[in-house]
Simulated assay, not measured.
Amino acid sequence: MDSGKIKSESELAIKGMGGEVCDWLPVYDITTMRSCEDVVSRALIMNAMINIAFDAPVELIADYIKDNQLTDHLSCAEREILAQSQETLSQQDKINLHWYLESLWALLWVMGKIDKLEVPYPIPDDMVEYCPKLHENEGPEKFTDTDSIRSYEEVYSMRDLYYRAMWCCREFQLRNTPHKHFNMSLIMERRRALTWCLDNASDWDNIPQDT
């Protein structure tokens, strides 16, 4: 894998979107990618927890996660949320879970459920069709039928693009000149998911987002 070439391709793509690049922004080290099972389990958890942001009973989501043997894959923050109720959840908790939509969209790409993960575009209205619908009592099969995930190089290349896009977005923010193709929250959440996939030693609650 040629990380220098990947860097150049990412920079070219960002310039093509009207963005700016930083020549000295380094490349990522090579890490050990997570397994297909790990990625599918995280996607199932996130898909379930998103429902809490839309007022689903917390205990119902906790039961779904337990029934599908996903408890061991929960993060510390997720365990704390599942120990609460809709009445005790903070507004920030719900906001954080709502942003899971963008992270999950990135995982759908990693699992090969979608073909593109384009920086300028938010999730589409039909995202729900790709995911198990808990409110319709659908099982986990839309995710568990995944036999393999994208290669390390594919995910590394996409994460590199989002890494450099984040630097670009921060530059626009510092100058108070927002750009329609660079949404910080969207970029952060997708980069978070991609980085987690690429490093099996990472902690979902504390994914580095430095540039």
Rank of each mutant, 00 (worst) to 15 (best):
Y162E: 10
L107C: 02
I14T: 01
S151N: 07
A165D: 04
I14Y: 02
I81F: 05
L12E: 14
S185H: 04
V27G: 04
K15C: 02
E37K: 15
N206A: 14
Y152C: 07
S103C: 01
Q91G: 12
E171D: 10
I6W: 00
M127L: 13
P57W: 06
E138K: 10
N47R: 11
T71G: 05
D199H: 08
Y130C: 13
F54G: 11
E11W: 01
S3T: 15
D199T: 04
N68L: 11
R175P: 01
Y28T: 10
R192L: 15
L89F: 04
C168M: 04
L174T: 00
A48T: 15
S35Q: 09
I14E: 03
S202C: 10
I81S: 08
G112C: 03
D63V: 12
S10N: 04
L107Q: 03
A165I: 03
A201R: 12
R175Q: 15
I65Q: 11
H181C: 15
V58A: 13
R170I: 01
T32L: 07
D126E: 11
R150Y: 06
V40G: 10
I114A: 03
D93N: 14
Q209I: 09
A56V: 14
E78K: 07
L12A: 11
Q92G: 00
L60W: 09
L25I: 02
L74T: 06
A77V: 04
I45Y: 08
P132F: 08
W204D: 09
I65E: 14
N51G: 15
W105H: 12
D2A: 05
M49D: 12
V40R: 12
W105M: 02
L186W: 10
M127P: 02
P26A: 05
V155T: 12
H135T: 14
R34N: 09
T146C: 15
L70P: 08
I81C: 06
T146Y: 09
I61Q: 14
E141R: 08
E20A: 01
D203E: 14
S85K: 11
G18L: 07
N137W: 06
D29W: 02
M33H: 05
H73Q: 13
N183G: 06
Y100M: 07
L25C: 02
S202G: 06
K180P: 09
V40A: 06
L174W: 03
S185M: 10
G18Y: 11
I50M: 14
L117W: 00
L117N: 03
G19N: 07
P120W: 01
I187W: 04
V110Y: 02
D23W: 02
I114P: 03
N206G: 08
N68F: 13
C22P: 01
C169E: 11
D145M: 11
Y121P: 01
E138H: 10
G139T: 12
K66V: 15
